[in-house]
Every structure is written in structure tokens, then in C-alpha cells.
């Protein structure tokens, strides 16, 4: 974390007091009292089981959910709706099937000359290692490659914050591990703030500066654990395993579910 060296941008200040969804079966309190400050350039992972509101939280930061109580600030500015200062990667790649990789990455770039645009697009395609696939179409790419394109698209507008919603959940285990290393490399190269939502404890501990553990009903922050391990991290390292267990215990301890936790984890 190089947050205190100089005034960097990408600080996220979350002060959500409540978020409810109302449907035909009444209202559901999805989030309650979420107070979280994310430092510029920090890598934060949010873990929790399904229904804990972690995706809702990310969607609020992205500006896709605007009905909630409280406020979210980016570099001191109150957020209202989506903006190019935040890049978003979803679990599905959400690429446009009729555009090439190049045009998908450049989709959100406005107000640039053709040359500048092309140069920026190439830079980000290069950053995710897909130079040879610039003029391919999404259906010609593998799942991992598509997700790289989605990351390049999110980064191309040079956001202050990159928001990732279970970005590797639908990839196979090997590709997932490779993508985790990739995202760290990209983070180090771009120095953007990253908020990544996952249900994979190991992924969170492998990536994050801090792991935010959420619990459901209503979705709230249970604990925040700093991961003070140098990178690259070794998943079999004793300290790594210890932190992973800490996160795990914290997740399963909630609501007296400790007895459900698998042994010898």
C-alpha cells in the first residue's frame, strides 16, 4: 500500500445505512450499516456466502443501484449513478457479440481521436496479454480470454476504481488461478484501487490487502482482516493457511454455524 506517499486518487468511502429490496413477498433488508473506507490503490476483497449482499454492495459502488440510504464517496465526491471513474467486471464477461475484441475494449471510450482511442485500446489489450486476438470476436475466445477482455474494457477508460463481481467464479480452477495472478500483475501495473467480490476464501486471501467478511440477514460487515503477507503469496505457506483459516472461521462462526464448518480445513 503506497497510499500515504502522496495524494493519490481512488479512495472509496462507503457509508450505507440501509438498502432494501421490495418485492411481492414484502421487503428484504439487503444491507445494513456498511461503513468501509478503502484507501487509494488498495486491493480489497469482499467475501461472504450467497445472500449476504456483497454483490449489492458492489452494484451500489458501481452506481447500478441508486435507491439506498446513506452515501458513497469517491475521492470525497458523492456518487450518484454510474461513471467512467469506476470500471466494472461482472461474473459473465458481458462482451458484445457483434464487436471485435478491439471494439469491445474501446466501447466506452468517448471524446478521443481515432488514433488515441486505438492506441489506448491496444495498450489495454496488451496489458491483458491478448495482442494476437485483437480482431477476434467473443465467440472465438475461451472463458478466461473473454474475462480478460472484460477487464481490459473496464480499465480502458482509466477508472480510479476497478470493481469486480466474482470475476473468476465461472472459470475452471487452473484458469482461475492464472487469472488471479494476472489481476495482481495488472493491479501493480495500473495502481488502481480494486474491490473484488468473491465467495472463494483462498482467492480473497491470495489477492487482498484487506479481506472484508460479510454476513447475511441483513447483509453487514462482520469483520475486516488485513492480510500482511508479501506478494507473490504462496498458497501452501503456513502463514497463508493461518489467515485463510481465520477468514474461514469468521465466516462460519456467524449465526452459530461453526459446527457446519468442514474439519481440517
Amino acid at each position: 500500500m503506497a497510499s500515504d506517499s502522496f495524494q493519490k486518487s481512488g479512495a472509496v468511502d462507503i457509508q450505507i445505512t440501509g438498502k432494501t429490496f421490495s418485492g411481492s413477498k414484502g421487503t428484504l433488508l439487503a444491507l445494513k450499516d456498511i461503513l468501509l473506507t478503502i484507501n487509494p490503490g488498495e486491493f480489497v476483497c469482499i467475501v461472504g456466502g450467497s445472500g449476504c449482499g456483497k454483490t449489492t454492495l458492489l452494484r451500489i459502488i458501481a452506481g447500478l443501484e441508486t435507491e439506498y440510504e446513506g452515501a458513497v464517496f469517491l475521492d470525497g465526491k458523492k456518487l450518484a449513478g454510474p461513471g467512467l471513474d469506476r470500471g466494472v467486471v461482472f461474473q459473465e464477461h458481458r462482451l458484445l457479440s457483434w464487436l471485435t475484441v478491439h471494439d469491445n475494449v474501446g466501447f466506452g471510450l468517448a471524446g478521443l481521436s481515432r488514433e488515441e482511442r486505438s492506441r489506448d485500446v491496444r495498450r489495454y489489450i496488451g496489458l491483458v496479454g491478448l495482442d494476437e486476438f485483437e480482431y477476434r470476436y467473443p465467440h472465438q475466445l475461451s472463458g478466461g480470454m473473454s474475462q480478460r477482455v472484460a477487464i481490459a474494457r473496464a480499465l480502458a477508460a482509466r477508472p480510479e476504481v476497478l470493481l469486480l463481481d466474482e470475476p473468476f467464479a465461472s472459470l475452471d480452477a487452473l484458469t482461475r488461478m492464472r487469472m488471479q495472478q494476472e489481476i495482481l500483475r495488472i493491479w501493480e501495473a495500473e495502481q488502481t484501487t480494486i474491490v473484488l467480490v468473491t465467495h472463494d476464501i483462498e482467492e480473497a486471501v491470495f489477492l487482498a490487502d484487506r479481506v472484508v467478511i460479510m454476513s447475511p440477514q441483513p447483509g453487514t460487515i462482520r469483520n475486516i482482516l488485513p492480510v500482511r503477507l508479501s506478494r507473490p503469496r504462496d498458497r501452501s505457506d503456513r502463514e497463508f493457511v493461518r489467515v485463510r483459516k481465520l477468514v474461514h472461521d469468521e465466516l462460519f462462526a456467524q449465526n452459530g454455524m461453526a459446527h457446519l464448518a468442514p474439519d481440517n480445513f
Binding site: A62, G63, L64, P82, L84, R86, F90, R94, L96, G108
Partner: peptide, 11 residues
Amino acid sequence: PKLLEVGKLYR
């Protein structure tokens, strides 16, 4: 609607 959301993100 997931694609439309992408459009929303880019305003």
C-alpha cells in the same frame, strides 16, 4: 438486460 447494464455503466 445485462448488456443494457453495460451501456448504463458507460452512461
